[in-house]
Design a protein around this nucleic acid. Structure first.
Length: 154
DNA sequence: GCCAACGTTGGC
DNA sequence: GCCAACGTTGGC
């Protein structure tokens, strides 16, 4: 069974239009530097899983589109490159510390779903990103939560 | 292994 | 820009 994920990104750094403009509409979801999120990238995310592209730290935070996982967890290469934005001297190819997956754009939502709209749905109270103090950049969703979000009438 | 200090995240 | 919440670091 496919699983479902929420993947946060700051749109000022990289947004869903950038993803659409990629030649294959696919990128490595690089730069995650949190162990809990790392574990999910490395161990839990599989080809065929689905993910929301979530805008964090945005003027209007919320969900911009859907993606599919097209490559399961593999070492984040940026961590190995001195001077790279995501370089980490404690990660090396023999013992990689950080992982990423490849994601492919499925759809830019016709209507952006703001965080405020998610908050209005009682069925979504357990959603990770709605919990106070949540800072994880990768979080799981249930199939029910996924469907509920896509059915939201704005 | 505790915990204070510090840095980062992210909504507002 | 503020600040609450949380993760990480490092001294002890």
């Amino acid at each position: 069974m496919a699983r479902y994920w929420m993947m946060k990104c700051e749109p000022s750094v990289y947004n869903i239009q950038d993803l659409k403009n990629e030649p294959t509409q696919t990128i490595g979801w690089e730069g995650v530097r949190n162990y809990q999120a790392r574990n999910m990238l490395r161990d839990d995310m599989k080809v065929g899983d689905y993910a929301f592209f979530y805008y964090s730290n945005a003027k209007v935070p919320g969900i911009a589109g859907t993606m599919k996982i097209v490559r399961a967890g593999y070492p984040d290469p940026g961590a190995f490159i001195p001077g790279h934005r995501y370089y980490d001297s404690k990660s090396n190819p023999d013992n990689p510390r950080w992982y990423q997956v490849d994601v492919k754009l499925v759809k830019i939502l016709d209507a952006f779903i703001p965080l405020s709209a998610l908050r209005q749905h009682p069925e979504l109270t357990d959603l990770w990103i709605l919990r106070k103090g949540n800072r994880l950049s990768i979080t799981p969703l249930t199939a029910f939560q996924w469907d509920t979000i896509l059915d939201i009438d704005l």
